[in-house]
Design a protein around this nucleic acid. Structure first.
Lengths: 142, 142
DNA sequence: TATTGTTATACTCTATAACTATA
DNA sequence: TATAGTTATAGAGTATAACAATA
């Protein structure tokens, strides 16, 4: 009987990430875009025009997953597909003004829940999360 | 034009959590239970017999979501439903030996990907993540 | 009546496999 | 042939609304 094994760091970090992810998704009920779409939009904003394949690689999702996310974002008018200069198969994704506005709105509206939680912490705890965000992103291959 | 706004801590933490969550889910292809089931199992292991409602509250999911998770876990023989001593509507969920074995196996097998990533960090970075896991869990209301 | 849990239904997120178009 | 992207399909994860059983 493995009664009360001490949870490892991997175990605790995994559970923490699963739970915070759930809470974050739950905050998006009336948001203009879903959590995954917001993530893709952020990457596109930060890294300039990308092809669908490049964006899929940056987001660490498979190409069909990106195809679906892009369909929603394009339909909502948040990005456009421009022609690729040298390859007819590819295209260049670029944010529209509406897309940039959504990103700006995220900061002010959608992340309010997380902002509030962070505001309840002390400065030392926020510093820990700041460093952790960078480490986690690196581990996740972002 | 909001060109290149500096990402806030909330924004960076959100993206980090989304991406690590994705990577973790991708590691579970041949695991005996899904990521959400593993999370429920861990909570049940740590907090002893619970009713479905209590477990849903602890996991911060809605009751129907827990109903579905429990159906899979019960079918796999990883937990049992015992009678509630004073309320015929409720039942008490308890891990079976097989359920406890799955939790033990998680440590050895399913979290290997994360263990490896953590092993690549230095001790200071692991200490940061250790503290961050506790803070995140508290923020997520776990 | 109020509460606990389940069923019905629907949407998001993601993947693999098969296909199309271009290189 | 090889590569970029899409379509087809399926399964996990989650929610809200409606229902059944018990308190």
């Amino acid at each position: 009987m493995p009664e009360m094994l001490a949870p490892t760091l991997a175990s605790r970090l995994r559970l923490a990430v699963v739970r915070l992810n759930r809470r974050l998704r739950a905050q998006r009920v009336h948001a203009p875009v879903t959590l995954s779409q917001a993530s893709a939009l952020s990457t596109l904003h930060g890294r300039g025009p990308l092809t669908p394949g490049e964006l899929a690689a940056a987001e660490r999702v498979q190409p069909p997953t990106m195809t679906r996310l892009l369909a929603g974002l394009e339909e909502a008018g948040l990005l456009t597909r421009g022609p690729h200069p040298s390859d007819g198969r590819q295209c260049l994704l670029e944010l529209t003004d509406a897309g940039r506005a959504v990103i700006a709105a995220e900061v002010g509206a959608r992340e309010r829940w997380l902002e509030r939680r962070l505001a309840e912490l002390d400065a030392g705890e926020r510093a820990v999360l700041d460093r952790a965000a960078a480490i986690i992103d690196r581990m996740a291959g972002a």
